[in-house]
Amino acid sequence: MALKSTVFKAELQVADLDRGHFADYALTLARHPSETDLRMMVRLLAFALYASEDLRFGKGLSTDDEPALWEVDPAGIIKCWIEVGQPDEDRVRKAAARSERVVVIAYGDKAVDVWWQQNRDKLARFGKLTVLRISNDEGEALAALAERSMKLACTVQEGTVYLEGCELRPQVLQAAA
């Protein structure tokens, strides 16, 4: 028998001063049995950073043709494709072909260093790609916020994210052209 996803509910208040975006979101996150609290919370962070009326979570780890999150406008055009973790070049290429903008939010320390060394040159050719990195310490602080029912306030100002007592400064490894 297959294990079921665990459902988490989040009331997220976003005040993104960098983009001038202010909104409240009632979110449901399904955490796949093989997904960690860290990965789930990085998905939630990605939502806060790129929040919009059309941003949605993908179907999850078991679906190859959907990202962690994506912004699809009412006409069906994929505006933004967001991956979390360390996707391979093929996945990024597919995302770049299907969407107007691609974002990767990598997390951790040594594994990200190795992944970035191996993929930096290959990924540099994707002009619409932004790659951000969350440090191990920031990731641990983020994962510690995970609860089945969460009420979170997030402020983004000058590239710094303030989320319930956590201060995160995502490092830009590659900025979109």
Rank of each mutant, 00 (worst) to 15 (best):
L45W: 00
D64W: 08
D73N: 15
D121S: 13
V103Y: 01
A143Q: 11
E147F: 07
F57R: 02
I105M: 05
V84I: 12
V84H: 03
A176G: 08
L132Q: 03
Y25D: 00
R125H: 06
V114H: 14
R120P: 04
A146F: 09
K4Y: 04
M1A: 08
C80F: 02
A124F: 06
F8H: 07
E140W: 10
Q86A: 06
S62Q: 10
Y107A: 03
V7N: 08
A75Q: 13
L27I: 01
E147C: 05
V161G: 01
T130E: 10
T130K: 01
L3S: 06
W70P: 00
E100P: 02
R98M: 12
P33H: 11
D88F: 06
A96D: 14
Q174W: 05
D137E: 15
D88C: 04
N136C: 11
A124C: 03
D113I: 11
R91L: 04
F8D: 02
V114Y: 14
L12V: 04
R148N: 08
A23L: 06
Y50F: 14
I134T: 07
D73L: 07
Q86K: 13
A106V: 08
R133T: 03
A15Y: 11
A75T: 13
Q157K: 14
W116D: 10
L61E: 12
V92Q: 04
G76K: 09
R133K: 15
E66Y: 05
T6P: 01
R101V: 04
L123W: 01
S34A: 12
A96S: 15
Q171Y: 04
T63W: 10
A75C: 05
E140K: 15
R133L: 09
Q174K: 15
E53G: 06
A51G: 07
R148Y: 10
I82L: 07
Q118N: 14
L168I: 12
A15W: 03
E158Y: 11
Y50L: 02
Q171K: 13
K94Q: 13
Y50A: 00
K9S: 11
E147P: 02
T28Y: 04
N119R: 14
D137Y: 12
T6V: 10
V161P: 00
Q171E: 15
M41R: 02
L123G: 00
L61D: 05
E53P: 04
A97T: 10
V112M: 12
G108E: 03
V103S: 01
A143S: 15
K94R: 14
L61K: 11
L163Y: 05
